[in-house]
Amino acid sequence: MSAPVTPTLLYLDDITVSFDGFRALNSLSLAIDHAEMRAIIGPNGAGKTTMMDVITGKTRPDQGTALFEGSHDLTVLDEAAIAELGIGRKFQTPTVFEMHSVEDNLLLAIKDKRGPFLTLFSRRTTLERERIEVLLERIRLTAHRYRKAGELSHGQKQWLEIGMLLAQEPKLLLIDEPAAGMTDQETADTAELLRDIAKTKAVVVVEHDMTFVRDLNVKVTCLHDGSVLAEGSLDAVSANERVVEVYLGR
């Protein structure tokens, strides 16, 4: 493949990961463009989470290429470096700092120098304070800013985590099952929030909830056994014989 003029934001090629002989990812290839939203579907064990692990540097692939913005090799960087490049990740189960206040959660996430000496002497700037206000509004937690994150409801934690992702000002957001455990209203709101985010940033959403995926109304990639089974609009993918067989069921 010759280098494109504007490199794709995320470029995975021939990624293989195996755990004790089990191939979690099998020669997976995927490309995500700037400001693109992509939904990833697939049965359990298809390799969705492992793929995220590879992109964020948690798991090193046995082989393959993983490039960010065409030049950063994700297979040699650690999690922190990859996060600094501008890749944010939300876990399947909401993971926030339960003992910190909502505000402090955002403060920790806000894009700033990350070294121990710098945080030791850092003071909150007016700019940061304003950014936190905006974020709190956006994730609808202004009223809860002083509460401990651990006291929030499940849906609120999901949103707080998305808010923390936004605070990082990433170029690419990886979001693992944002709708899990949410009410219908919350699910619809989340879809809207993500669509809004995708206007300026690339978003990759892993989701099982087909209604939610339909709400997102974006290109869909279906994984199976560690590689791409089908790719295209949701309707096209749903019509695919193999996808129906392994995932959707007849």
Binding site: A83, T95, H100, L108, P116
Partner: peptide, 20 residues
Amino acid sequence: KFGKVLVAVRDAESRTRFLG
């Protein structure tokens, strides 16, 4: 803020890592 990062590490180490 350093101390807040420490507590963040204590409660959710990989979350802290993925924050950079």
